[in-house]
Amino acid sequence: MASVPMEHGLLLAGILFGLGFLGVLVRRNIVFMLMCVEIMLNAAALAFVAAGSRWAQPDGQVMFIFILTVAAAEVAVGLALVLQFYRGFRTVDMDAADRMRG
């Protein structure tokens, strides 16, 4: 079975991570930001899988499952925060929350 080269996997993970990060930077909607963070997480997980496959180690997939759990927890907490945020600010525009401005 011809395996996909690790570099391709890592490149894909890098692109995904970059896209996710860009999304965090440019989107103001907090829900989208959360989703972008998810994309970044998954990109990192993909990198683990690619690396695990390259060295034929189970650790990569172990980490993937671990990240999956973390992502789930993060989404739970994140969505709760989003709800609280919406309740507090009556908007989902993240820039409205700049009370910690210097």
């Binding site: 990060f21 965090v24 930077l25 440019v26 103001r28 930001m33 993240m94 820039d95 929350a97 700049d98 009370r99 910690m100 401005r101 210097g102």
Partner: peptide, 18 residues
């Protein structure tokens, strides 16, 4: 000067991190 960098916007901090 320094406090001007503290905009309070998450996205700006994310730029910093990046």
């Amino acid at each position: 000067g320094l406090s001007a960098t503290q905009t309070g916007r998450t996205r700006h901090y994310a730029v910093g991190i990046g």
